[in-house]
Design a protein around this nucleic acid. Structure first.
Lengths: 198, 198
DNA sequence: CAGGGAAGTTAGCGGTCGTTAACCTGGAGG
DNA sequence: CCTCCAGGTTAACGACCGCTAACTTCCCTG
């Protein structure tokens, strides 16, 4: 897995701008002409790179879910034999990085899922479920008393907490990326601790 | 403020169904014919009750924000002289009740704000800001060491946590309303505690 | 230098959607 | 019994939008 240093391709430009626009105004609220204009070409020009507007959304959502899951799996492997608490911290850290660095994607991720074709939606749902189950397992190692349904609810709720970054005002108004990340991390741990110790 | 026992008016029926549909498929994803069909009349018939599709969304969003703010103010007044911790608990409880009982509205509340006319959006934003500031004040009474920007971030994050209920699977899969409410409440307090004690 | 494909362009088609217009109907009030 | 209006109906218009067709441009390659 080479770290990419080369310039972004046109496809990647388009995906990035489409993500931003979809997050701002919703999938149906954005026209192909707007997406094209955002990368300096006109609407129909997009069809040289994507089969259609739906295909852009699908690629974005599948990409997001896959990226989250892949990252989490990697963190689990790297932390083999490490204390469960540290693994949980690593998962939280990874999710926060994603939420802070790719706000538009995080917004899309739980907002436009229903606009997908059935097959794509099933795929995304499956990736999301795997990601959740991975968190649930780690969480229950840290808090063995926590029942599985409660653990799942707790994980979803903490995702809600971590994904709240788009509501935190534009970057600059908040106390800086590092401080925000640390605050979110502490709060997530606090919420889990409260869930795990009744 | 009389407790309503009479049958819902047609307007209220329409608003309720519109909220559900908007939450499910997004504002632009729902047609007026669909909204009409949901209450047993046809599309243009809606225009006897509302000036347009935009007006429905505006009334929904202003109503939600106003209801949240009014409820919170009432709870603050009722709890005059009570310990700050108890006031915070009361705020959390009120928000959870709303999130659990009116899921579609909670979904709309932070998803379709940008589809409003400028004046309506400003009004909603103002109501939301008042609601947040009210929480921030109470939170800083409970945790005096918490700086204001951090407190605001913490409040937004806990809103994200509490508003995660739509992702918790359809009612019936989770451990019952009471248990879910208690879990969310504990987690919110845990998150705040972690934010307030660095 | 010729050829060809990748990546644009503009024009336009077909469908959808919000909204208006014109008409209908049943029940309440004088 | 006549009137009127609240609350519907269907038809249709105009705008918008996703997508295709047809054409252009430019660079790369043999």
């Amino acid at each position: 897995m080479a770290t990419r240093t080369d310039a972004p391709t046109r496809r990647e430009q388009i995906l990035k701008e489409a993500a931003r626009l979809f997050a701002e105004r919703g999938f149906h609220g954005v026209g192909v002409d707007e997406i094209g204009a955002a990368v300096g070409i006109s609407g129909p020009g997009l069809y040289r790179h994507f089969a259609g507007k739906d295909a852009m959304l699908a690629e974005l959502l599948v990409g997001i879910s896959g990226q989250l899951l892949t990252g989490a799996k990697r963190r689990l492997q790297e932390a083999d034999g490490v204390a469960s608490e540290a693994v949980l911290d690593s998962l939280i850290e990874g999710h926060i990085d994603f939420a802070l660095d790719d706000r538009p994607l995080i917004t899309l991720h739980d907002r436009e899922l229903d606009r997908l074709r059935d097959s794509d939606r099933k795929l995304v749902r499956q990736l999301q479920r795997q990601y959740v189950e991975l968190w649930v397992e780690v969480l229950r190692e840290v808090y063995p008393g926590l029942a599985e349904p409660a653990a799942r609810s707790a994980v979803h709720s903490v995702f809600g907490l971590l994904n709240s970054t788009p509501h935190l005002g534009r970057p600059g108004s908040l106390p800086g990326r590092g401080a925000t990340a640390r605050l979110l991390h502490r709060m997530a741990r606090g919420a889990f601790a409260a869930a795990g110790t009744q």
